Amino acid sequence: MNDKQGALAGIRVIELGQLIAGPFCGQLLGDMGAEVIKVEPPNQGDPMREWGRGEHKLWWEVVARNKKSVSANMRMPEGQEIVRRLAAQADILIENFKPGTLEKWGLGPDVLHALNPRLIIVRVSGYGQSGPYSDRAGFGGIGEAMGGWRYVVGDPDRPPSRMGISIGDSLAATYGCMGALAALHARERTGRGQVVDSALYEAVLQVMESLVPEYQVSGYIRERSGSILPGIAPSNVYKCKDGDYLIGGNQDAVFARLCKAIGQPELATDERFVDHVSRGRNQTELDQLIEDWTSQHTVAEVEATMIEYSVPSGVIYRAPEMLADPHFAAREALIDVETPRWGKVTMQNSFPKLSETPGGIRSPAPAEIGQDNAEIYGDLLGFDAAELSRLEAAGAI
């Protein structure tokens, strides 16, 4: 029988961060079953509550799902004491403030580990907790630039571009989550927690393949190449009668099938395209030959042919295509969540899928700042009604 609570059931997470990197790390842990207690500034809340595009601001509904909201002013001694008491009963604490901020508030790792030696502290920042740049302000785009991502994204005749999402923040959050899971395993052996230091630029650097050694060994600097990867052919977006279609056929056997699919089987043995190196050398010419064929057909016709010949390919999806796709539906890649503010909201499910202890969305994002104060501060920390009223009157919660 599947454990509907998720693999991290019984793990308590305190999320202090705001905006993207810290909260996305909390989202990942919450999706896997952890109890996530999000600490928000009183009356102000996380700015993510107002982020998103279009008429409605919906990003909060995704990034704050599976979380409870409490309010605490961490700039006040009373708010700092609340966080210390929460940390004393937690397994993981997440923050993505500028390095030194927690220490300034009396919430540094030395203080928190004295209260709870088993605590795992995930610290996400632009440049990391050490080094000459550590005290600089850093956002996701800065990490993408320093980590090498921005330089190689876009067309070669244009300035460096960016993705339409905050990939640097998401990568740093994902590595922070990965580090927390590793630290949980290490704690089973040592009995001690530790600090997970996830820097935005290093998270980006980690996915940059062999970019650095290519330069260090051979002097090669990767440049922007638009929709292709130089030397990897065919692998591109090709125009059809009614849209664009992605085809990847750079492996020898796959390329031979692609040649048959477009009615030119002789291309597989043509000396210009006979192997990986030759195809890369003649990439532009090969792409034009393929597009000469795709441009005579609709996207649906090209897709049907590629499927028939088992050539990796696909439609370039937007949200409408995702919502209409039967594969998304069959795997529950998208799920409907009933939210207090917007009613039914369809969003991405929890990934990856675990067979025995699957993750999932157990609760919607908290609609109100501090809506769980009574439960967490009363039941977990033992504050009575009079104390809660005093803290609220003082502006601490």
Rank of each mutant, 00 (worst) to 15 (best):
R162T: 14
D372R: 10
C259E: 01
P99E: 15
V124T: 11
L229M: 08
G126K: 07
A233W: 00
D169F: 00
S227P: 00
A393K: 12
T346P: 05
R53I: 10
N236M: 12
Y175W: 02
D275C: 03
R318S: 14
Y317G: 03
I335L: 09
Q264G: 06
A261M: 04
A186K: 12
L19W: 15
G248A: 15
A396W: 11
L112H: 10
G370T: 12
S355R: 12
C240Y: 00
L354F: 05
Q194V: 10
Q283M: 02
D157R: 03
T339I: 08
S350W: 01
R281I: 00
T269E: 15
P132N: 06
N66F: 03
Y215D: 14
E392D: 15
N282Y: 00
S218P: 03
E78G: 06
E50K: 10
E303M: 08
E303A: 11
N116Q: 06
L16K: 03
Q18G: 07
Q44Y: 13
A7K: 15
P42T: 14
A137P: 13
P42N: 15
F24S: 09
D325I: 02
S161D: 10
F97T: 06
I228V: 14
T305V: 14
V152T: 10
I11K: 04
S198C: 10
T284W: 09
G191S: 10
E303Q: 12
R257C: 05
W342L: 04
D135N: 04
M208V: 14
S310D: 14
I92W: 03
R136P: 02
S227W: 09
A203T: 01
S227C: 07
Q18S: 12
V196Y: 01
A9N: 15
G314M: 09
Y133R: 14
A183W: 03
V345N: 01
D3K: 15
R224I: 12
